[in-house]
Design a protein around this nucleic acid. Structure first.
Length: 644
RNA sequence: GCCGUUGUAGCUCAGUGGUAGAGCACUUCCUUGGUAAGGAAGAGGUCAAGGGUUCAAUUCCCUUUAACGGCUCCA
């Protein structure tokens, strides 16, 4: 007999060789029908795999992340079985579960797969799922596994086998499909009730662009049709929030083929948002002791050689233009220009910390396939600043930047983000990163210290640092789930020396300052793209391109409407009158769709009493108000940058 | 940059080997209407660009370009 400890602490006795499924059955048949896999002593196991010693056991169902992953991993195998039957001779690479489903990478030889094939594959998968095939686990000696895949001429699986040792190789078979796989898998294919193959894409073998491109098929499956329908519904909702769609609907920005890819044109509505953001940044930075500077959009090659950017980033800078025998580059970053401002006049320790801020316009030649609405562009306006400080001042300065993030995030109600401490990868010193192992260690420690002392939750990621130092990135996700860095706070111990930046310290010695690069509001492009999705286009009053729309019931009240709008405009409120010859219902509908925060309906009643009927976007009628009272309330809401 | 898909009116999208259509938006007229679409008429397109096949190409083929879904990349 062995002892099985359940999550609630209960200990039960079973025969040696009991399976998680047996345990589930001993609790309830209903539970047993839902068990997908099990967590045995912290490892995810097949529900049908015998347990031979005392163990802690957690049964995993669809509601557990590991249960879901197992379900999708098994679905990938089911898809592979379907692909093999429709595309004989296909060779498979790997087919893992991902956040929303699974994929399988495959080499189709000279065959091609089209979107229509996905329909046929789904049909085949449904057929195969109904066969109720068990996923059978089998441990295989390495030489036998090698023989098996050599016989199949499958170089991909042989490559995988190369990294495995005897004793850790298992095969899983369901129906006619056998795969080298660590597992675990769900008990049988009948659990998979709803199948949707979502897309077909290319993916480099082992993620390396020098390698062959394999065909990747993405899919998602569910234990019931209802859940699939809900998922598709959710995708539909997400698409409505997509900043590219909203940006067009709300006339925020546009792209034009003649201007060029990744070069957004900001329409008047978008420009209002830009100006509001800059106003916020200026106020905040002024209060935090920053000084504003302005720098050119281009600079000579020599400066980027000094900074060290050119060797690292030449490929993603616009190619140089030649003038008077000199090469000039469009700037891809503002730091070198700012360093030159630091260097323009001799500095004493009394001048530090020096904080130079600029909403700098940068150009980056991003790869064509990487462009994505406003989130990834080739022309960007960065909420940039560089802080030059002593080692002693570093902690306070770095912390102050972090505090500034938090202050901003509060204003915007940003709460779904992850702080990422991005560290260097020691093996890439001298290549991707400046070769200063000691400084890396030291500054990474400093930054981690700030996060820990301020109780900021964060994750650490290797090999994500800038070439000149570690950084803290704020990661966010777009409506359709793509990850982006929204804001960044970086340490730079390299450029100060490269530019020979110096200040005279208290001992009258020359010292190199530490530099902090920071962009709490990221770039206008990415930030506004993010805000569009974050607010689903419903900007708070202070950001809304039109803050108040006055809607006269009919032409008779047009003059009164204009009087009100004039009054609001005088108080710096962005007000407009809907003077179209339309019924009030139509005017309201159109204004609602444009997501204007306040509508003022005015007719006979309001005109006679010098009042307005207030309507709040998305919330409907908000009652009659005195004109002056409304003005005062809205003005306060705007000035306080309230979210509601 | 790589793999795949797509490109028709300002927007969303039908359609066809015999030189194009809807809804919304726009213009004009009628209507002056009280909280999410009043009615009528009109205007609007080198069917992404270039080349090829064909008596004839928006439609089929090739190239280019752009967007989209991924991969790679992201100071």
């Amino acid at each position: 007999m062995i002892h099985i400890t359940l999550p609630d602490g209960a200990v039960r006795q079973y025969e040696k060789g009991v399976t998680a499924l047996d345990v589930a059955k001993s609790i309830s048949e209903g539970l047993a029908r839902k068990v997908l896999a099990a967590n045995v002593n912290g490892q995810v196991w097949d529900a049908g795999r015998p347990i031979n010693e005392d163990a802690s056991l957690k049964l995993l169902t669809w509601t557990d992340t590991d249960g879901k992953s197992t379900f999708w991993h098994s679905s990938a195998h089911l898809m592979a079985e379907a692909v093999e039957s429709l595309f004989p001779g296909v060779k498979f690479w790997v087919g893992p579960p991902v956040e929303n489903g699974f994929y399988y990478d495959m080499d189709l030889g000279d065959k091609k797969m089209s979107e229509e094939d996905l329909i046929a594959l789904e049909k085949k998968m449904n057929e195969l799922a109904k066969k109720n095939s068990t996923y059978v686990r089998k441990e295989i000696p390495k030489d036998e596994a090698v023989r098996y895949f050599t016989g199949k001429g499958d170089e991909y699986k042989l490559d995988l086998l190369g990294g495995l040792k005897d004793g850790e190789i298992t095969f899983y078979t369901q129906g006619n499909f056998t795969d080298l796989c660590r597992g675990p898998h769900i008990p049988n294919t009948s659990f998979i009730k709803a199948i949707k193959l979502t897309s077909i894409a290319g993916a480099y073998w082992k993620g390396d662009e020098k390698n062959k491109m394999l065909t990747r098929v993405y899919g998602v499956t569910f234990p019931s049709q209802k859940e699939l329908d809900e998922y598709l519904q959710m995708l539909e909702e997400a698409r409505k929030r997509d900043h590219r769609k909203l940006g067009k609907e709300l006339s925020i920005f546009t792209m034009d083929d003649d201007v060029g890819p990744g070069l957004p044109l900001w329409l008047p509505n978008g420009t209002i948002i830009i100006e509001e953001l800059e106003k916020l940044a200026k106020e905040t930075e002024l209060a935090a002791g920053y000084k504003r500077v302005v720098t050119p959009h281009i600079a000579k090659e020599s400066m980027y050689l000094t900074s060290g950017h050119l060797p690292y980033y030449q490929d993603s800078m616009y190619p140089p233009m030649e003038l008077e025998g000199q090469k000039y580059y469009l700037k891809a970053m503002n730091c070198p220009h700012h360093h030159k401002i630091f260097a323009a006049e001799p500095k004493s320790y009394k001048d530090l910390p020096l904080r130079l801020a600029e909403y700098g316009t940068c150009y980056r030649y991003e790869q064509s396939g990487e462009l994505f609405g406003l989130m990834r562009v080739r022309c960007l306006h960065m909420n940039d600043a560089h802080i030059y400080c002593t080692k002693e001042q570093f902690y306070e300065e770095f912390k102050a930047v972090n505090d500034m993030y938090i202050k901003y995030f509060k204003i915007f109600g940003v709460d779904k983000y992850v702080m990422r401490l991005s560290l260097h990868e020691p093996s890439k010193l001298g290549k991707k990163y400046v070769d200063e192992p000691e400084l890396w260690k030291e500054t990474e420690e400093l930054v981690r210290d700030v996060l820990i002392k301020t109780n900021t939750p964060f994750v650490e990621v290797q090999d994500e640092a800038a070439f000149y130092g570690p950084k803290i990135d704020v990661q966010i996700w777009s409506a359709i789930g793509r990850e982006f860095t929204l804001a960044t706070n970086q340490v730079d111990f390299a450029q100060g020396r490269r530019f020979k930046l110096e200040f005279t310290n208290q001992d009258n010695k020359a010292e190199t300052p530490l530099i902090i690069h920071r962009a709490p509001l990221g770039t206008h492009e990415r930030f506004i793209g993010f805000l569009l999705e974050h607010y689903a286009g419903k900007f708070p009053a202070w950001l809304a391109p039109v803050q108040v729309k006055v809607l006269p019931i009919s032409d008779k009240f047009l003059d009164y409407a204009k009087t009100i709008s004039q009054k609001l405009k005088k108080a710096d409120i962005r007000a407009e009158v809907d003077d179209r010859n339309e019924k009030i219902g139509k005017k309201i509908r159109d204004t609602e769709l444009m997501k204007v925060p306040y509508m003022l309906v005015v007719g006979e009643k309001e005109m006679n009493e010098n009042k307005v009927a207030v309507r709040r976007q998305g919330k409907g009628d908000a009652g009659i108000k005195d004109v002056d009272e409304f003005l005062k309330d809205v003005k306060t809401e705007i000035e306080e940058r309230r979210s509601e």
